[in-house]
Structures are given as structure tokens and as C-alpha cells.
Design a binder for these strands. Structure first.
Lengths: 186, 186
DNA sequence: GCTACATATTTCGATTCGCTACTTTATGGC
DNA sequence: GCCATAAAGTAGCGAATCGAAATATGTAGC
């Protein structure tokens, strides 16, 4: 029963954010999916910055993703680079203009205002809870990573070991070399 | 700094849910926005079940929403009813088939599995935190309600007063008659 | 080295989606 | 009654999406 409630609330937050995002999109003449692509590219590692990974992440067809990327390329939001080893694969990367667009389209005002409604000293505690929730969701997500932890953008080297910056989990040296199940799509 | 992290995590959850949802969509031959409409209609009250409210919620144009509703009507997911008092107004309602579709398309498996990764005794605590977060987001959302609290689907009558079932807030008799700022779009 | 198969991506035609501008119908103030 | 306003629908056009076939590169077996 409680289970349902918690995830129901998450769905509500998700819907709210999406609604705000769509409004921003029409403002800039983009579709939500375009922002999703930019967001993905701002977070993926070099093992998952390909059209194939993007296709898997978005759940669209290869053809559509190809067209979408073409559009974003025309607008100078992303750049294509052919892999030097395997010349079949294409690496996608965000260009400065793409990053700028992503920054503008984020519901940052919404978040700024929301934080005013939360007690400042509670935010740290919220943080921990939320990260646990996210971690659980990621673990149950079937879309696994193709990247190594040590190449993840959240990977951090500490004096006393390794740390995943997103889940705040300690990682062993061995773990860092393994394929990451957590961050691929994020 | 902490502020950024918390909302960043929410954005990650949101992105993950959307990704899963899109996969479900293509499975059923629907667009994400169609599910958004069904979801909205399952939660709106009689003051916000109109195409105009839906338009405001989705951030799309009236024409587009009109077409979208037409499509969902053809598929027997929703039903239109003309308002008896103001004959310009149309009320939309979910049909059983629409509810069934909504149930199928929800990332329920994702949530079920995610809950297995969380300690059962912590879920209640998570619940409180998440509801606070959602409440803060809703407060800062500019899309205000057009409905009265007492008509909200989350409104509950208790022996000792009134309760908002979503935010768990106590409501005075007076509050219950006011326009709700919290739940319109949800 | 050649063949067969696998993988990554693109191309293309048909279809659907979404926006803009315009129209229709209904309400309310004067 | 007349006009402004509001809710919803319609038509046409461009963009997005799908599905299937095509292209290009890499891999494995002989």
C-alpha cells in the first residue's frame, strides 16, 4: 500500500516536470524528445554516446533517431564523430549551443522556487532519501549500462578509494573496472 | 549546492520513467502525449476535465489537443459530454478501455521491482519526504487550480475534519471550499 | 583471401502528429 | 439585439515517426 503511494508521488513529480518542459519546448520550437536527446548526451559516457544507445534509451526506432540527430546537427546542437577503431560507430557530442539550450530549457525556476518551500536544513536529508529511491529505480531498470564505472561522469577518485558521485556508493578498485549497471541511461 | 543535487535526482527519476513509458507506448501504438492525456483525465476533477484545461496542462495548442482527443475518442478511450449549463464546454471522461490502457502502460513492473531494493520499513519514511517534495513543486508550479478542494479526488472527509489525501494536510471547512492551488493539473 | 553473417547507421516512402490560422457555436454585457 | 469574448472544432501544411530496405564496416570460419 505504502509502496503504491511513494511511486505514485514520483509519477506526479515526473508529470509536473514534463508539463513544464513541454511549455519550454514550444517556446524554443523544439519537441520534448529533442531535449531528451540533449539531456542524454550531457550525461552519457563514451560507451553510450552512439545512435544505437540513444535508440535504446529513447525507445524509438533507429530511423527516427537518425532523423532526430540530423535535425539537432543542423541546428549545431550536436556533433558527429566517427569512431577511430570501429568505423561503423558514430559518437555524438553536445556542442556549446546544445548545452546552452539544455540549460535554458530546464525547469530551473520551478526548482528554485520549490526549494524555497522546503526547510533549508532538511534538504540534505531529502537528498539521501531521493538518491536511494533513484538507485532502486535504476537497479530495476532493464536498460543496462554498456560503460565502465571508471569512465562514468559521476565517478570520483577519493584519497581512500573510489566513489560513485550519483549514488554516493563506495566502489572497490575492481568494481570501477566493471560494466556499470546504474548510469548508462543517465 | 545540495538544492541542485536533490532536483537533479528528481530529474533523473523523471527521465527514467519517461524512457520506460515511451517503450510501452510504441508497444501499444500510442504517443507519450496520449498516455499523458489518459493520466490527466484519471486525476482531474469536474472543473478541469475540459479540453481547455487539458490544453493548459499539456502546453500544446487547442487545435492539437482537439485532434488528440478525437483520436482517443475513436479508440474508445475517452468520452465527451456537453456541459448542461454552459453548452460551449465539453467534459472529458475516461472510459473503461482507457483506464485499462493506462493501467497496462504504467511502469508498474519498474516500481514493483524498485520497491524490492528498498527496505520495507523505510518506505513509510520515504513517503513523507516525497510528499513534501511534491508539495513544494506543486506550490511553485504556475499552473494553478481551477477546482475546489472539496471536489478534488484526493479530498477526504474525516471524523475530526477534512484531509487532503495527497499532501496529508489537514483542511479547514473554509479551505475545502476554496480554489485548490495544488491538485488541478494532477 | 573469400564468403557468410553480424552490427551500426542511414535512406526513403507512407503515415501520423502538431502548429497556425480560421470557423463555428455559445455566453454575457451593454 | 449587438458586439466582444470564450470554448471547441476544422483545414492545410510542415515536421516527426515508423517500418523496411539499403549501405558500410567488422568478425568468424574455412
Amino acid at each position: 500500500m505504502e509502496k503504491t503511494t511513494v511511486f505514485d508521488v514520483i509519477e506526479r513529480m515526473s508529470a509536473l516536470i514534463r508539463s513544464e518542459e513541454r511549455k519550454k519546448c514550444t517556446e524554443f520550437g523544439l519537441q520534448p524528445v529533442h531535449l531528451q536527446v540533449l539531456d542524454y548526451l550531457s550525461r552519457c559516457n563514451k560507451y553510450s554516446d552512439t545512435p544505437a544507445s540513444l535508440t535504446n534509451y529513447l525507445g524509438m526506432t533507429r530511423g527516427t533517431v537518425s532523423q532526430t540527430v540530423l535535425l539537432l546537427e543542423k541546428k549545431s546542437y550536436v556533433k558527429k564523430t566517427t569512431d577511430t577503431i570501429d568505423r561503423r560507430v558514430i559518437h555524438l557530442s553536445l556542442l556549446p549551443e546544445g548545452k546552452a539550450m539544455l540549460g535554458q530549457a530546464r525547469p530551473s525556476e520551478l526548482f528554485n522556487q520549490a526549494s524555497d518551500f522546503l526547510k533549508q536544513d532538511e534538504l540534505g536529508h531529502y537528498d539521501e532519501t531521493m538518491v536511494n529511491m533513484l538507485s532502486a529505480l535504476q537497479k530495476s531498470n532493464k536498460s543496462h549500462s554498456f560503460g565502465l564505472c571508471k569512465t562514468c561522469q559521476y565517478f570520483t577518485l577519493l584519497p581512500d578509494g573510489h566513489l560513485c558521485g550519483l549514488t554516493k556508493e563506495q566502489l572497490t578498485e575492481e568494481d570501477s573496472g566493471k560494466i556499470c549497471q546504474e548510469h548508462r541511461a543517465l
